[in-house]
């Protein structure tokens, strides 16, 4: 009898039930919809390419201009230290990797609001959308990384100002961490904004403020001792410091800082997926 019952239930491809478990995350569905993931990435790229005159040139222009401004304001006027590294490389490295985080964060944090209409019409695993945003952000990041590597190679060959080391090989780890943090924070934010819309405003300048709490425009070594714990509590700190340490040979790289960031990312990501998953279910009823 029991086996009959089992067979009976097994015949169905899909059983729709009230969702009770928060941890019931549709991984299998996400895998099944992987082509949609690809299409969303393509869509993001196409939109940027078609809607702007300069298209992907913006990807290059933006970090270059930001670096120039940083060199002028923080380098010349404020006279902040760059740990003895050429200013161009110092700022560009920080901006490149920081941008990937902030793009991932801000783009994924609009998931629900931007897609309310389509979410109301058709089902697909919602997590596909933020994943696609992070993936399409990766393309942009890679272009900017190539830009950075261009400058970097020049300084490496023509001058003796930088001493890269084997820690360069950790770069993929940093990229994954940045993507994970951006995605994690982004999906938590987008889940919360469905209920509390004011958080959107917080987000906009929050990301900007967060940059100043991260050693993007200054080296960690220049932070006064009493503020260090705060800066170190920021999980992005060790990533940016580690990136600069590997490529430029300056800054600090204790493994425990990196481990902290890894754990932090894992927790944020897990929390984000759970909250997102919960919101996804009730979202259409609350907008």
């Amino acid at each position: 009898m029991a086996s009959d019952k089992f067979l009976e239930e097994d015949r169905w491809d899909l059983v729709i039930q009230p969702n009770k478990s928060l941890l019931n995350i549709p991984w299998a569905d996400i895998w099944r919809y992987r082509d949609l993931w690809r299409m969303f990435v393509k869509r993001d790229v196409i939109t940027v390419y078609k809607q702007t005159i300069l298209g992907p040139i913006w990807y290059v222009l933006q970090p270059v201009l930001t670096t120039l401004v940083f060199m002028l304001v923080f380098g010349r006027i404020a006279g902040l230290s760059t740990d003895g590294v050429p200013q161009v490389l110092f700022y560009l490295s920080g901006i490149t990797i920081w941008n990937y985080f902030s793009e991932s964060f801000t783009n994924t944090s609009k998931t629900f609001i931007e897609n309310a209409q389509i979410f109301g019409k058709v089902y697909f695993p919602r997590l596909i959308l933020p994943l696609a945003k992070v993936s399409s952000g990766l393309i942009k990041f890679l272009i900017q990384l190539i830009l950075f590597l261009g400058f970097w190679s020049y300084f490496l060959i023509a001058t003796e100002t930088i001493q890269p080391n084997a820690y360069v090989l950790l770069t993929p780890v940093y990229v994954v961490l940045m993507a994970g943090l951006g995605l994690g924070f982004g999906i938590i934010f987008t889940s919360l904004t469905t209920k509390y819309k004011d958080l959107i405003f917080l987000l906009q300048f929050g990301v900007q403020l967060l940059m100043y709490a991260t050693p993007v425009i200054y080296p960690l070594s220049s932070v006064p001792e009493k503020y260090r714990p705060f800066i170190l509590a920021n999980p992005i700190t060790s990533i940016i410091e580690g990136f600069k340490y590997g490529f430029l040979g300056v800054g600090e790289f204790p493994w425990e800082h990196l481990m902290y960031s890894v754990c932090f990312t894992a927790i944020i990501l897990w929390l984000g997926v759970v909250i997102f998953n919960r919101t996804e279910r009730s979202f259409i009823d609350t907008v």
Partner: peptide, 12 residues
């Protein structure tokens, strides 16, 4: 698109 409050739907 939205989930039920109670009951079940089985689909093949």
């Amino acid at each position: 698109v939205t989930s039920p409050t109670r009951g079940e739907v089985r689909i093949k």
